[in-house]
């Protein structure tokens, strides 16, 4: 399959990109790394009139350090995170997640912002950054705004962006030295999309206890009772498995079990 005809623009700044988006009136697509959009174009599942390549916008490739957070430009690649070429707000958690995304060739070009905008339920960043409580920085004709990631994805492959808007950055709070992170995904093959995934973030200093179930048929799911899951000596693991299996996320006992087991594996990583 070859893409249908489209126009191509490579704006130099955010304002120009917003203007192009506005003019296209919903028929344009923003491209960062192109690792998901490329196949969609070739399969003609996406047939935009215009591709707006945002990789020439310098500020989107940069990282801004704030006192209690780090803002990653939307075009920071998975490989940059993996290789620790950008500062890390999570004591090594972000690089370890990045290293497990698809294959190195994909990580070289694929970006954090692109992955979140694509909103594949099985993607690594959607689940793990939701667990981290990340915020999305959006630019559009009405100016810039911030959206909590757990409010950002509305459905599979759908996000809360207006036609003139696109992601410019991802803001992740700085976690303390005492923070613990767990992440497990089950893939049929190394580098493939996950069948089940779980992420756990615990930061006693910040008072955070959050568990997320990913690779569902839709949005990441917040684990309701983390206190039960964190009960000591294996009790918490059993509670988590029972709780998640009972949620019937996939409505298929085999897949429900996979979700429960994936979350339990992530939980084990933070268990003390």
């Amino acid at each position: 399959m070859k893409p249908s005809q489209f126009g191509y623009a490579r704006p130099a700044n955010v304002e120009e990109a917003v203007r192009l988006l506005q003019e296209a009136d919903g028929s344009a697509k923003v491209m960062a790394g192109g690792q998901s959009l490329g196949p969609l174009l070739n399969l003609r599942l996406a047939q935009p009139s215009l591709i707006i390549d945002i990789t020439a916008i310098r500020e989107l490739t940069l990282v801004r350090e704030e006192k209690d957070a780090i803002v990653y430009g939307a075009c920071v690649t998975h490989a940059s995170v993996e290789d620790r070429r950008v500062p890390d707000a999570t004591n090594g958690f972000l690089p370890s997640v990045a290293a497990g995304i698809a294959y190195r060739a994909v990580r070289n070009r694929g970006t954090m912002g692109g992955s979140l905008a694509h909103a594949d339920p099985a993607a690594d960043w959607m689940t793990t950054l939701t667990a981290l409580g990340a915020e999305i920085l959006v630019a559009g004709s009405a100016g810039e705004r911030r959206v909590a990631l757990d409010q950002f994805m509305t459905a599979p492959f759908s996000v809360a962006l207006e036609d003139s808007e696109f992601i410019i950055g991802i803001r992740i709070r700085r976690y303390s030295q005492a923070a613990r992170f767990g992440y497990f995904k089950f893939c049929r093959k190394r580098g493939e999309f996950a069948e089940a995934m779980g992420a756990v973030v615990i930061d006693p200093e910040l008072g955070i206890r959050r568990g997320i179930i990913g690779a569902t048929d839709s949005r990441p799911i917040l684990v309701p009772d983390m206190d039960a899951c964190l009960r000591p000596s294996g009790e918490g693991i059993q509670a988590a498995k029972a709780m998640i299996a009972a949620m019937k996320i996939a409505d298929d006992p085999v897949r429900d079990g996979m979700h429960a087991n994936a979350f339990a594996r992530a939980l084990k990583q933070v268990a003390q």
Binding site: M1, K2, P3, S4, Q5, R44
Partner: peptide
């Protein structure tokens, strides 16, 4: 080109 042939097929 193949792309144009696919346009026709559509």
């Amino acid at each position: 080109t193949r792309a144009e042939a696919e346009d026709m097929a559509a």
